[in-house]
Amino acid sequence: MASTIYRLRQFVIVCALFVSASFLWNGLKIGLEEDFATATEGRLQAEGSENSKPLKLIVTHSDNEGDGKTDNDSISNNSLEDSKCNIPHLDINGSEVIGFFEKHQPLKCQLSDSGIDPNWVFIDDEGKIRFIEKRKTAKCFIRYFRRFDDNRNEYDKPVNIFDGDVMTNSDFGVVACAQGTQKWKSLLWTVAENKEAHLKALKQKEMRENSKLIPNPEPRLNVYFLGFDSLSQMSFRRKLPKTVKFLEEVLGSVVLNGRF
């Protein structure tokens, strides 16, 4: 009987402790939630007041050619609107970069002792199709083709070609030749004469001549852009000096020098 009363007393004490701990935990949790809500509301109000203010821009460094002032307080907030990009004048053979460049020997695509037969057919300096001496008696066909879209080409029917012919139907063609049991196949490309383009150019020339008779004609700009991908302005001048000289001195081109 005594042991039963003792155990019952322990059970009551444990239950009382559990209930007290639950009340304490709930009270502490409610207090933390109220503090968090108050702090969040205050932070949102502060952010809202800051966002309502106009954005202030302070420029510390730029390419703008100013009056030499260095004090940040003296720089106008809208100084970016008045700034311009200044292309630096660098030494193309500067010691910090010249070590990365070297002159390579020309590629020898076909060595005389390689055992590879040279091209049977080629385009000479006059734009004519020529057969090498060893293949003068070869029978050759050309199949002109042109670009149809990004993934397909449009091909014509094969036609015979002979030494001295010129490519007419397209700038590109697949050539297949046979001489005895030997065969050869390759590509040929050139700038084929386009009679339609010539007629169009003549008509435009006549229009320009006639426009001179019209008072105050509309100006007609004719600008041709030539770009070299994956080549910086400095590397362009280092690696293609003859091209630079031709563009600037012969054609009188305007080189953008990194401005485009």
Rank of each mutant, 00 (worst) to 15 (best):
T60C: 06
G164S: 06
P158D: 01
D150I: 04
F23A: 11
P215L: 11
K239H: 03
D82C: 00
E193V: 08
R135H: 13
N78Y: 03
K108G: 15
L247V: 03
Y224F: 09
L247W: 02
W120D: 00
A2S: 14
V97D: 08
I75S: 01
P241W: 03
Y144F: 10
I13K: 14
K245E: 14
N257F: 04
F162C: 03
S253R: 02
I132K: 11
F122H: 11
S112P: 09
T60F: 11
L226V: 15
E196W: 05
V97E: 07
S74Y: 03
D156F: 05
Q179I: 08
W120I: 00
R135T: 06
R135W: 07
L24G: 06
D125C: 05
R238I: 08
A201Q: 10
F141K: 11
E249T: 12
C85E: 02
I5K: 15
N26F: 10
Q179D: 15
G258L: 01
Q179C: 08
C85W: 04
F131H: 03
I87P: 00
V175D: 01
P88F: 01
S3P: 10
G48M: 01
E154M: 04
K195D: 10
S186C: 04
D63G: 10
T190F: 10
G173I: 01
P106F: 09
N210F: 10
S76M: 05
Q105W: 09
C177T: 03
V97R: 05
N93A: 10
K108F: 14
K136W: 02
